[in-house]
Amino acid sequence: MLKCPYCGHQEWVGALFCQQCGYPLWEEVARAEAQRPSPVNGKPAAASRRRKTAISRVTLRLPDGHTVTLQGSGPWLVGRPTATHQPDLDAQALGARHVSRQHARLEWRRGGLYIVDLGSTNGTWVNGRRLTPHEPKRLHDGDWVRWADLEAQVLFDAPHTQTPSPSQEDLAS
C-alpha cells in the first residue's frame, strides 16, 4: 500500500493520485526513486539533474524564541491531529487552540517555498495580510506567518531569491 503524504489515505501500489484528496502520488514515487542510490555509483540516481531545484531546510521560529525544524522535503501540513492523521506541524502541541484540522500547507514549488490556506476556519496571515483560501502565496525568508492563534517566523535559505525580499519592507512599514 501507499500512504498519501498529504491526507494519510491508504492507496494501492500503482495509484497515481490519492482518491481522497487528489494529491499526485506519482510525484512522491518519482521523488523517492530519484533519491534511491543508483546501483552504478552509489549516488542518488537523479541527483545531478535535481540540483537546480535544490531545496533548503525550513525552520519556524516561534515568538518565544523556540525553533521547530520541518522534517523531510515537504509538502508539510499544518493543523491539529485527528484520530487517524498526524499533521507535519502539530499546532496543538505548540499550544494553539484555534487552528483547523487541515489548516494550511507549506511546499516547495519551482524553487520557491509556498503557503496555501486550505479553507481554514480562522484563516492564515502572512505579514499581517490574510490569505485567500486555496491561493498559493510565495514565502520569503523571514516572513511572519500566523495560522489562527499560532504565529511563527519562517526561516530558510533561498538559493534563488533575486532581489531583497519585499517582505522585509512590509515588516518595516
Binding site: 484528496c21 487528489g22 494529491y23 496555501v116 486550505l118 479553507g119 486555496h134 491561493e135
Partner: peptide, 8 residues
Amino acid sequence: SHLAQSLN
C-alpha cells in the same frame, strides 16, 4: 475542497 485545491 480537495477538488478545488487540485483544480487550482
